[in-house]
């Protein structure tokens, strides 16, 4: 982090726009960032036509994002863009100097080692559930490859104890004995069906929950 800070600078392109340079890598064209962004967005025309939800990996200084938004606006009645960026300093600088006027664009930022934080944000999850198309901003991606790869390969923890803190209070009380255990919800439900039996009101709820997630709600007698 310290090293990157040292090598962070802002240059001005020939047509007068700000271009961040990190570790010697220019995040946009030093000649004409807008023209470059237009070409970038045009390269994804088919993707943008098919999907109005776009996840962009890398903020840069937002030129490519604005161009993608412009194209989406011409193709769809509504659209959503979320940008993922790990460089907090860059995000702060961007917010100070430019920022997006378009309310359909949002930046999600977290430290590289805290990718899991993204997946506790309901807004972010809700966006991912809309199955967005992913567009990579290459200069940003190559700079933060580890972060983006971790994001792309992320898998949520499956043991109840690992997500215990995220549960609501009634569920915490119900699962209190499992706070230190290494058991998944699937295994816990299986134990209700086989060994443990139904001993708590919420056990019934979990059995109903299990039937819903397995899409096996039989109506031919129970």
């Amino acid at each position: 982090m310290e090293e990157r800070k040292k090598q962070y600078e802002l240059k001005t392109s020939r047509n007068g726009l700000t271009v961040p340079v990190i570790n010697g890598i220019h995040l946009h064209s030093i000649y004409n960032p807008i023209k470059e962004a237009e070409a970038f967005a045009t390269g994804f025309a088919d993707t943008l036509k098919e999907n109005n939800n776009i996840l962009i990996l890398g903020l840069g200084f937002g030129y490519h994002v604005e161009e993608i938004a412009k194209q989406l606006n011409s193709m769809h009645d509504s659209y959503n863009i979320i940008i993922l960026e790990s460089n907090q300093e860059l995000v702060q600088e961007f917010n100070k100097k430019r920022n997006f006027k378009d309310k359909n664009i949002k930046i999600f930022s977290c430290k590289p080692e805290k990718v899991d934080r993204l997946f506790v944000d309901l807004e972010f999850i809700s966006f991912l559930r809309s199955k967005p198309s992913i567009i990579k901003h290459d200069p940003s991606f190559s700079l933060e490859k580890k972060f983006f790869m971790e994001f792309l390969k992320y898998k949520a923890p499956t043991e109840i104890s690992q997500y215990f803190d995220l549960l609501t209070e009634p569920l915490k009380s119900y699962f209190v004995d499992l706070e230190e255990e290494t058991i998944t919800i699937k295994d816990y439900i299986y134990s209700i069906k086989t060994k443990k039996g139904i001993t708590h009101q919420y056990d019934y709820c979990l059995l109903a929950f299990d039937t819903i997630i397995n899409k096996k709600n039989t109506t031919r007698g129970v």
Binding site: F119, L122, L167
Partner: peptide, 11 residues
């Protein structure tokens, strides 16, 4: 999806 914690579905 393996991306999301079961906590959200349970909650």
């Amino acid at each position: 999806s393996p991306l999301y914690s079961d906590s959200f579905a349970l909650n």
